[in-house]
Amino acid sequence: MIEILTYPFMQRALVAALLTGLIAPAIGTYIVQRRLSLLGDGLGHVAIAGVGLALLTGSAPIPAAVVVCVVGAVIVEVLRQQGKATGDVGLAILFYGGLAAGVLMSGIAGGGTGALSQYLFGSLTTVTGSDLALIAILAVLVLVPALGLAPQLFAVCADEEFARVQGLKVRLYNVMIVVLAAITVTLAMRTVGLLLVSALMVVPVAAAKNLVRGFYSTLVCAMVVGVLVAVGGATGSFYADAAPGALIVVLAIAVFALSWPISILMSRRRTVALVLPELVDDDDMDAPHITAEDHPHRHVEGCGHPSVQHGDHTDFIHQGHRHAQHADHYDEH
């Protein structure tokens, strides 16, 4: 355990992994709340164009990727706000255009796809000191608004119209979310890689949703899961000689798989009150009145039969039927 900390390249790798594990699920919580789980994946494709551009011009890849990815993210969000990104076709063209442009530019630069692959799948052990400094700056840049503006961002993601009636600058916050996501994607390209970064944004959040209740608890729990799998994956890859990015994502999915039975156990204990809406149409048609035959048993709360809220009353589930009390008898519902 201590052995791996003696290698400077592993120290840098572990810090980079830790920062990625902290940031990706933080912004991922908002992305998932807005039901844009695949946004990170798309932005990863756009970032490839930035890496290609850096290879072509001989500049540093992370800054170039940040700029290209942020510009792409803002274009996506503006198209969405103007209602022009209908049918996802515009987004698809932007995303695959980014991938194609990146591959082309990398080829012209003479590196081919091989030069790209360390960004596509991550190359944690080649993180340099200056890379790490940049990653740390970007991480702070993402983390401060992601946590400091959590109430505002939550309101905008959960109920955009209500947020607008609160006088919040909803457009600005929406742009902020995609820009933060774009920075996160580029920040993570050295650790998990551009093709797998979206997993680290989404999977810890999905696991956290199974483990805890409430938005803020989910945010914190997702960040804890993210750090655990990122650092665990980086460490594991050292000993198992495996690809760190892939191992991190596999670990995250393993945590999600484990969280599933836990959530089932927890929801049992919570006895989820299922509510069946009463289907009453505008044309005043009443449901047929069918009485249960010969019913000596009296249903009460805790009588052993599971109950379900049905419109304004309670139905008891009895041998595959739903029984509702009506005057001195039970109706079949």
Partner: peptide, 17 residues
């Protein structure tokens, strides 16, 4: 959008103005 949030979190977002 509000399904996973706690009641107090939803109500607290009313104070944002």
């Amino acid at each position: 959008g509000l399904a996973g949030a706690k009641v107090k979190e939803v109500v607290a977002s009313g104070r944002l103005a």
